[in-house]
Design a protein around this nucleic acid. Structure first.
Length: 225
DNA sequence: TGCACGATTCTCT
DNA sequence: GAGAATCGTGCAA
């Protein structure tokens, strides 16, 4: 853990927040389950600036979370758990908080959610939509079949970040409070947080208008649209 | 059992 | 900006 924190610090030396990260290095801890047991919108905003890490057989990749979306429980018509729908696919949403909900979409891609919320058993989650790479960019580029180098196209979308981080169905239901996949605490972001509507939920009636998408203002790795 | 579709991305124009 | 890619999942019959 401590060793890897140093790797992160070195990797983001060029980042304008690097000095803050280094100063807070000693405080770097994997976020515990209690973090995810807060109100889901609180978790969605609090995750901004935190470091998603995946220690895989290919090597370790890590990225600073810069964009999230909150999906509330049965009342939220945009959520997979809308109307209390409980299926094989979304079963993990009904379990413990702080677990990965990875689903397959469009026959090609995966998306990573983290279960969260302050009501046990209520199926809520936070979709991770974009990260800013801080370690293992070469591995990410190889997985994304892109030229090496820090490139926004590496991770500026929910399925792009899954490809870059090596996240697939295998990580579904995994606890993200312990290696190999976890989220490290980090200093609160300096950037302003933008609140806007969620993407790709036009089917959700009035719920599509909720400002439950959050991202760091002017961050280059925020997904387009 | 069969069908419609999706919390997306990529390529082509 | 438009359309294609591609298949697991959910739901109706």
């Amino acid at each position: 853990m401590i060793v890897f924190s140093k790797i992160i610090a070195n990797a983001i030396k060029t980042n304008r927040q690097a000095y803050l990260v280094e100063r807070h290095l000693s405080k770097f801890m994997i976020l515990k389950r209690s973090f995810y047991e807060q109100e889901v919108i609180t978790v969605a905003t609090a995750l901004l600036g935190k470091i998603l890490v995946h220690e895989s057989v290919d090597g370790t990749t890590a990225g600073r979370i810069v964009e999230t979306e909150a999906y509330l429980g049965p009342e939220d018509e945009a959520a997979h758990s809308s109307g209390g729908r409980r299926t094989t696919r979304n079963e993990v949403m009904y379990g413990l908080k702080g677990h990965a909900y990875v689903y397959f979409i469009y026959g090609l891609y995966y998306c990573l959610n983290v279960t969260a919320g302050d009501v046990p058993g209520k199926p809520e989650a936070v979709l991770l939509r974009a990260i800013e790479p801080v370690a293992g960019e070469d591995i990410m580029a190889k997985r994304r079949q892109l030229a090496e180098g820090k490139n926004a196209n590496l991770t500026n979308g929910p399925s792009k970040l899954c490809m870059a981080m090596g996240i697939s169905k295998r990580q579904n239901k995994a606890a993200i409070t312990t290696p190999p996949i976890y989220i490290n605490d980090a200093p609160a972001p300096e950037e302003a947080i933008v609140e806007t509507t969620r993407i790709g939920v036009d089917y959700a009636g009035e719920w599509k208008n909720r400002n439950w998408r959050f991202y760091l203002k002017e961050n280059l790795f925020v997904s387009k649209k």
